[in-house]
Write a protein that binds this DNA or RNA. Structure first.
Lengths: 143, 143
DNA sequence: TTTAAAACGGACAGGATAATCCGAATAAGA
DNA sequence: TCTTATTCGGATTATCCTGTCCGTTTTAAA
């Protein structure tokens, strides 16, 4: 079991954060990301392709190609990444899995879970990938 | 995807809460639980059997048999149920799935996730199944 | 123009979890 | 004692998610 997100979503978060952290280096190949993060190249590649489709990141084929952020890092929240990959389930579904449970017909645990759900959503929506870029004054070494 | 727990764990929570809610009726059959909760009888049965093994609930075979709480409802926390079924992963693992992430070598998101993790654990450990028993003054109708 | 490096796309394999099936053991009540 | 209702246990099947494979397309550089 993962904690809260699917594996694919975990990789998407790791991958986009990696792109933010290495933004000044331009295109980053799936191979480099996969090697550095210790995950499957094919899988992270497919996952990032999904983010390319919705315009969050860019890709370039061919030699010297790779992935890079397509938008202002300030505008990309972690919540957006999660919702693209996993959808809204983690924030909408009942924590006990009861299909009838909603705010208008809450399960026995609903009121206790609600603040946690909201806190998680608030954290993810207030965190942008810009917060993971290296600071501008920091010296960056080439690989 | 489930929210935070495995299906099996969700069913365990639902099942034990059902036993608490119907405690004064004695043995409750897996068939009744499954029908009322709209889930698989075989699956909830196996799941509850696991809780019998660790002494949290009791079972009785044969006619008029079924399941019931084996301990004081005040002593059974939701966290205990979760840990029996799903273990500690949801409270220990990195929310982004990074295997190296621990409090001593935290990932970029660690400090932001930590309070949520702790809040969830606090909620689950402070909630006992006794809180789901029908109030003593409430009139209970037989089925 | 050739070569190498990269994303892309589709199909397929593997594994874990979820769910089902069925027979055996057990116990209550007629 | 017989029948019925129940848990128990093992085996099997189904499903979804994860991961792999491989050929195609694209592009930069030699």
């Amino acid at each position: 079991m993962t904690v809260l997100f699917s594996r694919k979503c975990e990789y998407a978060l790791q991958g986009v954060l990696y792109l933010a952290q290495n933004r000044q280096r331009g295109n980053i190949s799936a191979e480099e990301i996969a090697t550095d993060l210790g995950i499957s190249q094919d899988f992270i590649s497919k996952t990032l392709q999904g983010l390319v489709k919705v315009g969050m990141i860019q890709s370039n084929r061919g030699k010297m190609g790779g992935f890079s952020l397509a938008r202002d890092p300030e505008s990309i929240t972690l919540l957006e990444i999660v919702k693209i990959i996993d959808g809204n389930e983690a924030f909408e579904n009942c924590v006990m899995g009861l299909p009838q449970c909603h705010s208008d017909s809450p399960c026995a645990l609903h009121s206790k879970w609600q603040p946690l759900r909201e806190a998680a959503q608030a954290m993810l929506s207030s965190t942008t990938v810009a917060q993971f870029e290296p600071s501008k004054t920091e010296v960056i070494f080439d690989r």
